[in-house]
Design a protein around this nucleic acid. Structure first.
Lengths: 205, 205
DNA sequence: GACTAGAACCTATTGTTATTAGGTTTTAAG
DNA sequence: CTTAAAACCTAATAACAATAGGTTCTAGTC
């Protein structure tokens, strides 16, 4: 019988499809093996277990998102770049919900793994967009973090259906929020700095 | 032998502890049963399965978070209220990471279940904070959504360690971001409306 | 104080996935 | 053609989820 031609990359691809179809949590060695026409234990020659399989899907998603982000901001600046970048993530999430979920699990990736290439790329694009605004370089990190937080937070909430039961469609809020970020970034930092953050409760890390 | 005195509420409590200790995904019927000194199948008298067990943990977390949010904004308005509300969520996440994760799964809850009480409560508090700003009532939803997105997004990224490998501590960004939101809400809506959202790619939902 | 209905809990069993161990076959290099 | 590594397999163990079908406790009733 001919070999299936399994590769770590191929497993990631199959896992990614699986994630979009059934949800990231159902990306399972058994199901991937089934789709590859191979027995489950055979996969252990290519990945160390379920954890690594999912990790590969996460990396795949991060790369794809970075590719799209790159296209989305190419040649643009200011609000156009901001909108392009944000939309590229949102579009990706709707087209590949499972992969988007996977990308959110980037958390658990070891520093080196994540730093492979996708991690830095995302950071670079976001920074590039912010560089278009006259944000003080020292304060840019904060703006970068806010952009990332808001975009990821919105998409997550939207996809989880949180906006489905209140009246104005999410699209409207999305436009307003991007406009809000644009406005904010035009005169960042809003707070010159001195002001201390309200510290978290004592027992927290 | 004395009965264990299992209750749906007790299962939720044990599940919540488990979530904080081992992570939400490890909230399992088997482990909960073990901690209650009971056989796994016995739990089926109280919950319909793993899904409902986790759902109960989610509801517990939502209620707890709403309680804290209520305390946090009591008697405050403007930036103080905004800060208090945002911090209450962040503090909770650090003190109960598993429950916070669970609360993010509120997505999958059916409308009625979620609407039980916690859902509307959160919405009310956020709206109350925004009411302190002179936001046009019609545009308030957008501000509410932005606040929710940014706060949840930031906390998620922070807890997943995304900010651990770039220089300024997350606390600083948190303060700046809250200040930014405060600034933004003072003159919301930034965009009077007409402007259309850049539509998502066609094949998306 | 025994009687009974229902709740609370149990054992047994099946199916699914993960993982390890230890072959066998294909492929490709020399 | 030989051979060594890679690719794949079968067998077996362990854990969790879930269903089926008891048994025992407990509360309310006569």
């Amino acid at each position: 019988m001919a070999r299936a031609g399994i590769t770590k990359a191929r497993l990631a691809a199959v896992g990614a499809e699986l994630a979009d179809e059934l949800g990231f949590e159902r990306v399972t060695l058994a199901e991937v093996a089934r789709r590859c026409g191979v027995q489950t234990p055979s996969l252990y020659s290519h990945v160390s277990g379920t954890a690594e399989l999912r990790e590969q899907v996460t990396l795949l998603a991060l790369e794809e998102m970075a590719d799209r982000a790159a296209e989305a901001v190419a040649g643009l600046s200011g609000k156009a770049a901001l909108t392009g970048l944000a939309n590229s993530y949102r579009d990706y999430a709707w087209q590949h919900p499972g992969r988007f979920t996977a990308s959110a699990a980037a958390a658990t990736l070891t520093a080196e793994t994540a730093a492979g290439s996708a991690g830095p790329r995302h950071a670079r694009f976001t920074e590039a967009v912010l560089r278009g605004y006259a944000v003080d370089p020292g304060a840019r990190v904060h703006a970068v973090r806010m952009l990332g937080s808001t975009v990821r937070g919105f998409i997550t909430l939207e996809m989880s259906g949180s906006f489905d039961h209140s009246s104005p469609p999410a699209d409207e809020s999305w436009a307003q929020i991007i406009h809000g970020l644009d406005t904010l970034f035009r005169s960042w930092p809003a707070a010159p700095g001195a002001e201390l953050p309200s510290p978290r409760a004592e027992d927290a890390r």
